[in-house]
Amino acid sequence: MEIALLEELSKDLNSIASEKVIIYSASGVEEKNVLKDLKLISLGAEAAIVRCTFLDIDAVIKWRFPKPYMPPDLDKQFRVSRTITEAKALFKAISIGVLTPIPLYMDPARGLLIMTFVDGYSLRDAIQRLDENAVCDVCRIAGMYIAKLHENSIVHGDVTTSNIVIEKGTGDVYLIDFGLSNFVKRIEDEAIDVHIFFRSVESAHQDVEDLAKRCFIDGYRSVRGAYTDNILKMVLNIRRMGRYVAERRLRGVWGIT
């Protein structure tokens, strides 16, 4: 499966993979491939992530491959619009001080986005090894990042512990995968970001659940202040909208909200 995918990708990459850069310098002429060392590192639902070297930069290719089960025009529309939105959101995020991969090259028609590689561990994988203070720090920074994005009308759309990355060496916290991000300023969408983070700690990291949530909200509050309480109220509302939620019964029977 993976080999078939890579073959398909290399066809799409052909236009840039065959290009070369020629560097003229005092010491002579040097010819380099634009793209080399392709290696599939993860296959997601929506895209494949391929590690590569792009113009000597350690990079990843995010390739939104065609989905055989989708009608082609709908599939195409998604791939194009999500690729563009992702690149836009990444640039915007960087400009407001959120650490993310930096976009280097894009080809929306083919669903291609090349960006810098962040060498580190996801919070999801690292959380067992970190002590309480470190977990708190990472979650607080993540909360600050999300709040900054919200202040600037961006919702991330997939704030899970897999998408929070701690860089090796520096320990800097990066936010990755803006594939489901969107430019909106609605409290419901902002609250869903917070809800998704909560759910991801509840389902995978029960032992640090309270700490991670508290620190995330501390960070969020440090940017957005009292507005955070409105967000938390909305998170509660969203949870009650779900199926078969016991709390909802209270409102129905007793008029308590």
Partner: peptide, 9 residues
């Protein structure tokens, strides 16, 4: 294509 497609996380 104007109908909303909503996947959140």
């Amino acid at each position: 294509l104007e109908l909303p497609y909503v996947v959140r996380g």
